[in-house]
Amino acid sequence: MPAHPQHVPPSPTTDSPTSGPQASADISRVVLDDSDITRALTRIAHEILERNKGAADLVLLGIPTRGVPLAERIAARIAAVEGQDVPVGSLDVTMYRDDLRMKPARALLPTQIPASGIDGRTVVLVDDVLFSGRTIRAALDALNDIGRPRAVQLAVLVDRGHRELPIRADFVGKNLPTSLLERVKVSLGGIDEVDAVTIQGPATGEVTA
């Protein structure tokens, strides 16, 4: 989740009052439904295998909260295709955020590095929304303290643009042009009730970002 002040991360607590497409007072539209998400993740899994010529030495690290189930789903598809399990973990970037001091101290989320470690492996970071790029910068710093991967790649379900750092994704589920006034909300079964990506906010035509 990008650490941008204008971006409200799709966390269960902050978003619960406006969750669900119809609950919001703003215009809310579903841009990806569950089958769209399933197809996107399947394609990402194949692209990862294609780029890396197989699943050897791959490690998938999801960025909490919603990057983790995405990483697990991608790993499951890779295992189905290759017949080989890929280590999956999670990487919390809270302490590496550049806006740590601008908000009250935040609770830490789980970091679980697979027992095989990341040294010499290809790490694929997985997150739900790529926005300013600041979360990914923090994740790269966090990786630096954990080990030395051979390469780091980035997979995201949604790229909504508005980058503030020279960071790009290697694997994108859906490019979603948005205005800064809109909010992109990713819901995933397991954490949320349904699989969906929705945009909330003023109708696109009325906005000049």
Binding site: R101, P104, A105, R106
Partner: peptide, 11 residues
């Protein structure tokens, strides 16, 4: 220490 000092105000 993190929860008292890490953010803009203690948690």
């Amino acid at each position: 220490l993190y929860l008292l000092l890490g953010g803009s105000e203690p948690a």
